[in-house]
Amino acid sequence: MTITVNLTVNGQKVTRQVEARTLLVQLLREHLDLTGTHVGCDTSQCGACVVQVDGVSAKACTLLAAQCEGANVLTIEGLAKDGKLHPMQEAFREHHGLQCGFCTPGMVMSALDIVRRHPSPDEATIRKELEGNLCRCTGYHNIVKAVAAGAKAMRG
């Protein structure tokens, strides 16, 4: 079944005809060429595909494009403005919170959701709240530091 979905992605209104079975992550990667959102598993565990839907984090591999009709989606590509990194992105760079970069977009998007709920997260909170994101490179040490620093920068 082909359906039409209308949504806003990174501030741009988009309309696409897709099969009903199209996942949000497929819409982003294959139809909108936004390949920053990654697929690292098929059981909703790894978090490489985390984006924001209407201001809260969601796993784009576990969401149909159809469910996002009218939604406002923010992906990793929508964070930096005019070439300037978002404070959370900057914190990841400063603290070496990424290595191969594959989990990174999902980590950053989840980090923003953590800050939304916990503006001043401590280490234990950050570690607990990252339970939906896997990283095989960093051992999480520098990601945890980066999330704390990013949260601090966002508080201003």
Partner: peptide, 14 residues
């Protein structure tokens, strides 16, 4: 890091 943090990496599946 700039490319990886902005979704600009090019992995094979991309």
């Amino acid at each position: 890091d700039y490319r990886f943090l902005t979704g600009g990496g090019t992995y094979t599946d991309d």
